Amino acid sequence: MIELLPALEGFISTAKAMASFDAFRKNRKGDARALIEELKGNSRLCFRVITDGVSPETVIPHFVTTEFDRLNKAGFNFNLLQRKRIPPFPGIERTDLASWTDKTTEALIVNIYDKIKNVQSIHQFASGNASIRRRIINIHKRILLLLRHAE
């Protein structure tokens, strides 16, 4: 199990995170809704590695970036998902997520997908890299931070 800061502990189980994605998606339409669904699927894959012990090599080919790529190419404003900047959640200052305080939703989403693409590239060209699991954990923490921010 990964260690999370108190601000993210409410999303520690797959069921709780998936319910939070459903609530996040509920009042969104069109492109935003499609992106949230894609993030939900990617989060589910992270949970497979972190909580179910599935090997990263099995999961990585299933990460999807199609909606993000389409929206990014079209100039979509990812801040529409949450207009406010990321607040200083309790406990975040003592974690590797501290640097996300006061950044935009768009910056976080772009970073999540950049990290997914990086893991896919490592998997494709340098499989067996020992840091892949840690990288998936870091992706997952950012996705959970996005969920917390979207509440």
Rank of each mutant, 00 (worst) to 15 (best):
I2Q: 08
L5K: 06
L8I: 03
E9R: 12
G10A: 08
I12A: 10
I12G: 02
S13A: 05
K16G: 04
S20A: 15
A23S: 14
A23Q: 12
A23R: 09
F24S: 01
K26H: 04
N27I: 03
D31Q: 11
A32E: 15
R33P: 04
A34C: 11
E37N: 13
E38H: 10
E38D: 12
K40T: 05
K40C: 13
D52Q: 07
V54L: 11
S55E: 10
P56D: 04
T58I: 04
I60P: 00
T65M: 07
T66F: 07
R70S: 08
L71E: 03
F78D: 00
F78P: 00
N79D: 13
Q82K: 10
K84L: 04
K84H: 03
G91K: 02
I92R: 00
E93S: 12
D96M: 05
W100R: 00
T101V: 12
T101E: 10
D102C: 03
K103D: 07
T104G: 04
T105M: 13
I109Y: 07
N111V: 09
K115V: 06
K115Y: 12
I116V: 09
N118K: 13
N118I: 07
Q120W: 10
S121Q: 12
S121L: 13
H123I: 05
Q124M: 15
Q124H: 14
A126E: 13
S127R: 15
S127W: 15
S127N: 14
N129R: 09
N129K: 15
A130L: 11
A130R: 14
A130G: 10
S131M: 13
S131Y: 14
I132A: 07
R134E: 14
R134T: 15
R135P: 08
I136H: 05
I136S: 02
I139D: 01
I139Q: 01
L144H: 00
L145P: 00
